[in-house]
Amino acid sequence: MMIQLSSIHKAFGARVLFDAVRWQLQSGERVGLCGPNGAGKTTLLRIMAGLEEPDQGTVARSSNLTVGFLPQDGISHTGRTLFDEAALSFQELLRLQDEMQELEVQMGDSSVQAGEHQQLLARYADAQETFHHEGGYDIEARVSEVLHGLGFSQTDASRPTEEFSGGWQMRIALAKLLLKRPRLLLMDEPTNHLDLEARNWLENFLLSYPHAG
């Protein structure tokens, strides 16, 4: 069990959206929420993502669960190129890469004593093993693959993110979410801003999503 909803109740004023809702998701399940506008699909996703609290009931999540949520709209990015913004999905690996580069500088310092050099070498070996195991050497390829799949061109990668319109801003947000690979992926109408080619790519990507199936 990844997430379990028990006796969820949610109302806005006199309007009751959910009453005694019970539901659970298992690892590997793919589920689509269907319903008319205003039925509460977005609210339910936000409750599952921990962004909104139910009026009554509980939400239980497995201890190792990571959750990613994509809203319908309202996300914008500034201050970085498209590629650098997408690469932030690998923030921990980028931090580790910076640490490795700093260790390389220290190991190249001729004033470092032999004992300290061995300690630096051991730290570097551990960091490099983690970086390799977590796919650090594939960051550029993974970012490029997802950006291309969502319709960005090769030249777009170096463009400032503020140059992209609202629909493309949501594609950037979707790219970052897919690159983070949370165990539970919650997306609120993710195809709203996608053309047919990008929709087909997203469908194939989700079919092979590492935490599904």
Rank of each mutant, 00 (worst) to 15 (best):
G79T: 06
L174E: 03
Q128W: 09
M187T: 01
R159L: 09
G166R: 10
G57M: 11
D109W: 09
F152L: 04
D138W: 02
L70E: 08
E92Y: 06
S110F: 09
L65D: 13
R61V: 11
L51F: 05
N192K: 05
R181P: 02
L150E: 02
E92N: 05
L120A: 06
A173L: 04
G74S: 10
L82Q: 03
V112E: 05
V105R: 12
L185T: 03
F131A: 03
R95N: 07
G135W: 03
A173N: 06
L94W: 06
H133G: 05
R159S: 05
S62G: 14
R159E: 09
G167S: 07
S144C: 09
M100Y: 03
W168R: 08
L96V: 02
G166C: 10
P160K: 14
S153G: 10
Q56S: 15
E99A: 06
A157C: 09
Q101L: 08
L65C: 12
E99D: 07
K176V: 06
D109K: 09
H117I: 10
L150H: 08
S76A: 12
M170E: 08
S110E: 12
A157N: 05
R80C: 11
L179T: 03
T155M: 10
Y137G: 04
E145C: 10
F164H: 04
L186G: 00
L178K: 04
K176C: 05
A157T: 07
S62V: 12
L185N: 01
D156W: 05
F164E: 06
Q118N: 11
D188S: 00
A127T: 08
N192E: 00
M107K: 14
I139L: 03
P71K: 15
V143L: 00
L121T: 15
D109P: 14
E129S: 11
D188W: 04
Q72K: 12
V59Q: 10
L178R: 03
R80H: 12
E134C: 06
I75T: 12
Q128G: 01
E85G: 08
H117A: 12
L51Y: 07
G151W: 02
E116D: 13
S153D: 05
D126P: 03
A141K: 10
W168S: 05
G68Y: 08
L147Q: 02
I172M: 03
G167C: 07
E129Y: 13
Q119G: 14
E99Y: 09
N192V: 08
E85D: 09
V112D: 08
P190N: 08
V146R: 04
A127G: 06
L96Y: 03
L82R: 06
M107A: 12
E52M: 15
E140T: 04
R123E: 11
E99M: 07
M170K: 07
Q118D: 13
V59K: 12
G136V: 01
Q97Y: 03
E92A: 10
R80G: 05
L103I: 04
S111Y: 11
L150I: 09
E140G: 06
L121E: 15
S111Q: 13
